[in-house]
Design a protein around this nucleic acid. Structure first.
Lengths: 244, 244
DNA sequence: TGAATATTGATAGTAAAACTATCATAAAAA
DNA sequence: TTTTTATGATAGTTTTACTATCAATATTCA
């Protein structure tokens, strides 16, 4: 039975039991008042908030509803998270940290940056997720849906500056820097590696959201196939960075 | 004094007095309960909601605050708009309709689709806006800031489907289709014209937001120059659609 | 001109959301 | 065993999001 710690250049992943994809992620302490991973109640908050934000949408999701679902109290949840916005960022940060872990894991020992980028795009669209086993705590497929539908709301607020000072967006930035690094490795002369990285990341979500909700804004409306988004992103990325 | 009606293929622009850029836009009736353009109170709601959403952010903006500012009452505003989400979409739709008008106006008589696309990108980043005169009702520069910071919130809700059925996103879709058409004119073989159009539109906002708020996610952090975003978008677009 | 209609302002009120505070009990740590 | 900590139960406040009612004032139109 494979059971080991991973020591990579990852700041946020502290432990991973790989066979059942049980990952421990070191979260920014500013995100919570009490560490939700330290108790059953906390874990319940995390796992059920993922389900409920997906079900109701972030605006209609409330701590009261969550408390009823997990048979606890509103006040109980407030002991863990200052407000629902912090909880959202917690979930998103978890996702980004986990995704960077996945990327490092899956591109490990691969030297060709172009192949690395292709793998990254596949991971970003979560097309690989058929193979990924469920975590009992975090349903990554649903969490991915939250990232698609609610992700931008983390930073599109008047609090960006303060939240950013508290490093709340670090996992997202880390991922962006990571991808930008590989882009620069592929083509050191390309002048916009970071902007291109955010473009690929954001579009992997927007194209998915549009495909499913406003299909005329995409070219994937009929088939609704994530594979087509993949092709679009590959085309977009490599057109930009391939030297003629 | 120039004063004429414009008859173009624009569904939403019904009247334009060009010398002082006074534009009348036909808005979707589902967006309001009473047409705000028909009264002073309504016009006040529009002009001041733009200022206040920009000042407070959409989440903290309330009809009560707006009522106090324009010295009317909460109930008075509710006579015009069902809720603040509809008001937001009203403002965004106005913007998109106006932008498509601007694009048609500025690319008129230009045959070269590549030049058309360059003009469109310039308009999207609103780099041209130094020259644009203020409307006494709509401050387009501030409205552009709202589109950047709050635009996605129009459709990233559990109401997308219903809102879409009411055609609330039509101006955005019209613009997307318009740009996609020019892309296809430039390169009829390019397989993702619509997705590329939304990518350019969305990135013109995201890169701007990131540049100003989370600069490490872009390559424009030091200079904070919209012109650099322009260059990025031009590069992104033409790399994709230029045949090798 | 006078009556009907529409628009706004003023006021009041409700339900839910977003918290905060307090106290008792149960479980875990010292 | 004592102390600390975590949770549950309950109650309360402020703000948001909205609805309802009525009077005053314009505007329309017959």
């Amino acid at each position: 039975m494979l059971n080991y710690l991973i020591f990579v250049s990852l700041h946020n992943i502290i432990e991973s039991n790989c066979m059942d994809i049980q990952i421990q992620i070191k979260m920014n302490k500013a995100l919570y008042l009490r560490d939700p991973m330290d108790s059953d109640l906390g874990k319940n908050i995390i796992s059920h908030s993922i389900l409920m934000i997906d079900e109701y949408g972030f605006e209609s999701f409330t701590f009261k509803k969550l408390a009823q679902k997990i048979e606890s109290t509103e006040a109980g949840i407030y002991r863990y998270f200052e407000n629902k916005h912090r909880l959202l960022i917690y979930l998103l940060d978890w996702y980004w940290s986990w995704l960077e872990y996945l990327i490092i894991f899956k591109t490990n020992n691969i030297d060709d940056p172009s192949l690395q980028l292709k793998i990254i795009i596949e991971i970003l669209t979560l097309d690989t997720f058929k193979e990924i086993k469920e975590d009992q705590l975090i349903d990554y497929k649903i969490l991915h849906q939250i990232v698609i539908s609610e992700g931008s709301k983390a930073f599109l607020t008047k609090n960006v500056e303060l939240d950013n000072k508290q490093q709340l967006f670090k996992p997202y930035k880390d991922l962006c820097r990571h991808i930008a690094g590989i882009i620069s490795e592929f083509n050191p002369g390309y002048p916009f590696p970071r902007s291109l990285a955010t473009t690929i990341i954001e579009m992997s979500h927007y194209q998915n959201f549009f495909m499913n909700n406003l299909p005329s804004l995409t070219d994937f409306g009929e088939e609704k196939d994530v594979q087509a988004i993949n092709q679009f992103l590959i085309n977009l990325l490599f057109s930009s960075i391939t030297k003629q």
